[in-house]
Design a protein around this nucleic acid. Structure first.
Lengths: 249, 249
DNA sequence: CCTCGACCTTCCGCTCAGTGGAAGCATAGG
DNA sequence: CCTATGCTTCCACTGAGCGGAAGGTCGAGG
């Protein structure tokens, strides 16, 4: 009735999902009223559906009365084949990379025009980073992002280059300069950043291939790359090649 | 009407959840018909709900026409506070433990009368293990399980001791013998297993405390503990204490 | 102490979304 | 070719879901 493109969004299942997706990284716990507002579902209806979701274990209630995503969804999420082969294969190599460098190690893929972090290994002596597993960040401000962008289809590159939003004062926001970096990334086989996502953090990243295609990126975050860039690059390349070989074509 | 405890299970939301929970570790991909059977929802209804779930991203379809859990659920699962503090705090220590031992390292909690694996670090040189993150295994056949069982309430211990199912020929199935082991676990501060879950794999595990309570267990899997049991125990204890200290009371 | 406001919970009669049997397709195997 | 198996579409009936409104609860402010 309200100018909808077609029949959609009205079903109970849609509404239940709208309620679940009202949660995000910035709002992992929500009170009923806000849940109703964010999901755009009338309060009493939200109340009933939420009650049902709690009964089923998809949501849980905290001591303070807020709602959070329940264990059931956590369990189910682990069954999702979201690059599970890649994660499974890569995991040991990430560990070894961490053991060899004591730097935070990341495995990431491109999700549209964002980097999606699939796995992360951090030690207590590592440089603090913002990314967690499941985080999505802009492609142009991270090492793994630059690798993935450099090997992305032309239309994706263009879309990203058109909207280079700064994250820190050091973020590269001139399309020409980033384009030159991307060419270098392909030529050199690795990408670097320096304070472009987090001030005081540098990163080095390399592509992971399956046959000829770049399917993921492998990166480390350190406080300074000056000192041992060659060592980091070769460690990353060895690990990336090993993952590629294990993945097969 | 069929002797139900109360009105339940009939709602669309329940049915959608029944369809989602039809997936498990042994069946991560299912065709429509089996989904309908496992969820106990009529085929045409399953078809419609599944279609909606796919549209919403909660399910996805493989090339072969089977269904799998979608990326949306994976994303949501990561927002669940399932021991997220514990996992977050413990992760770096698991990495260091792996770096120091090159053995598979596990972080686990008790979930009723099972061990629930929260995190795992495996290297490519490590002994192969069955557990993955999210796996639930019997308490009496694993190192972390014995630790958690030894510190569990009496009624849980009794329930478990009554049903000691063998996993391998070496699994401890005599209640008296296990009970003695549990006493030793509390006294010694660590538990061991030897081929009780997987033949050829041994494990050592210690408790992780928050204040006086045992909230988790930390364990390693190796091919033989004879050689360096003291070294493993002390490495585990150092890491467990560090986690406990970081967790606070 | 009472009042007001923000928020959560319960109620209930109307209505349309969801239901599911059945028929129609598409493949595969005998 | 026919039969079996499994997926998709259809549609008329009906009770599950809807949501406005009324009733609670809690806490801050007068």
């Amino acid at each position: 009735m309200a100018g909808n493109t077609s029949r959609e969004g009205a079903g109970v299942v849609s509404r239940a999902m709208a309620i679940l997706t009202a949660f995000d990284e910035a709002h992992p716990r929500l009170p009923l009223g806000e849940l109703s507002r964010r999901a755009d579902v009338p309060l009493s209806t939200t109340h009933r559906i939420v009650g049902e979701l709690v009964r089923l274990g998809a949501l849980a209630r905290t001591e303070t009365g807020d709602y959070v995503i329940g264990r059931l969804i956590w369990d189910l999420g682990l069954l999702s084949p979201v690059h599970s082969d890649l994660r499974e294969v890569a995991s040991p190599f990430l560990q070894d990379l961490y053991a060899g460098t004591l730097a935070t190690v990341h495995l990431a893929v491109r999700d549209g025009s964002r980097v999606l972090y699939l796995d992360r290994v951090t030690g207590k002596r590592s440089v603090p980073v913002v990314s967690r597993v499941g985080t999505r960040l802009p492609l142009h401000a991270t090492g793994v992002g630059k690798v993935l962008l450099a090997h992305a289809p032309a239309d994706v590159q263009q879309r990203v280059l058109r909207r280079l939003t700064p994250v820190t004062p050091y973020t590269v926001t001139q399309p020409g300069r980033l384009r030159a970096q991307l060419v270098a990334v392909v030529a050199d086989g690795y990408a670097t950043t320096s304070g472009e996502m987090t001030i005081g953090a540098c990163s080095v990243a390399v592509p992971v291939r399956s046959g000829p295609d770049v399917v993921a990126a492998l990166g480390v975050v350190v406080s300074s790359i000056r000192r041992d860039r060659p060592r980091l690059v070769s460690a990353l390349q060895v690990a990336a090649h090993a993952i590629s070989r294990t993945l097969g074509p």
